Simulated assay, not measured.
Amino acid sequence: MSVTYCAAAPGHPHHGPYHDGEYGFPSADDRVLFERLVLEINQAGLSWLTILKKREAFRAAFDGFDIDRVAAYGETERARLLADAGIIRNRLKVDAVIDNARRIVALRDSHGSFDGWLRAHHPLTKAEWVTLFGRTFRFTGGEIVGEFLMSLGYLPGAHQADCPVQAVVLAQSPPWKAALDAGYRGYEPAK
């Protein structure tokens, strides 16, 4: 997009609802967190619009982003996913989603939930998050991790300061804002 997301998204049939009601908004729901991770992984190399258009197909293909069900997938489900024209049929991405679901299940032992794991490590800089995700999950490079965390309020930057949605997001005290308010200086804007 040649204009900012905040300028281009409102009114768009796919970008609008995502921008206005999800992007940058915090969530403690592990299913929401897992869905966003799955979508960000699958967006790699593609447009976000492609992913938003396929979102319902992803939801159906991955059992509503039920982490336990996806973690239990075997070869039959993997083959089904690789044959599903409604989603991105990339073997590396499909394998990463299944393996990452298993890793989230394992995080429950140490942190109670995916959300608990995120909160236990917050605040970190983007570079620190990328390193942590790289040690913990598959197919989570810098852009994927950055967008995932920004989309859920762990990193700032989802909305421009003058975007009306920014005020709504800030009212929900996203983790990045709470950290900044508590004195963490890793999220201060560049001067």
Rank of each mutant, 00 (worst) to 15 (best):
L81C: 02
I104M: 06
A9Q: 00
A72G: 14
A106W: 04
L81V: 02
H121V: 05
G45R: 06
Y5R: 07
Y184I: 00
F114R: 12
D99C: 00
Q160M: 11
V94D: 00
L33H: 07
L152R: 14
E77D: 14
H122N: 11
L46D: 05
D20H: 04
D30S: 09
I144H: 01
A57S: 13
G86K: 05
W176M: 10
G86P: 09
R55Q: 13
H121M: 09
A127K: 15
H159R: 01
L155R: 01
H19Q: 05
R80K: 13
E40R: 08
P174K: 04
V145P: 09
I104H: 01
D63T: 09
L155D: 07
V32W: 09
P174L: 03
W176A: 08
V38T: 15
A120M: 10
I104T: 04
G21R: 15
Q172K: 15
W48P: 03
Y23T: 03
G116F: 07
D68A: 14
G183Y: 11
E40D: 11
V3H: 12
G45E: 05
E35C: 07
G24P: 02
R119C: 09
D63F: 10
A7M: 02
D162A: 15
N42K: 03
K53D: 06
W129R: 10
F139Q: 05
H159N: 04
T131P: 00
F137A: 06
T125Q: 12
W176I: 09
F58V: 04
T140H: 01
A9D: 00
I144L: 02
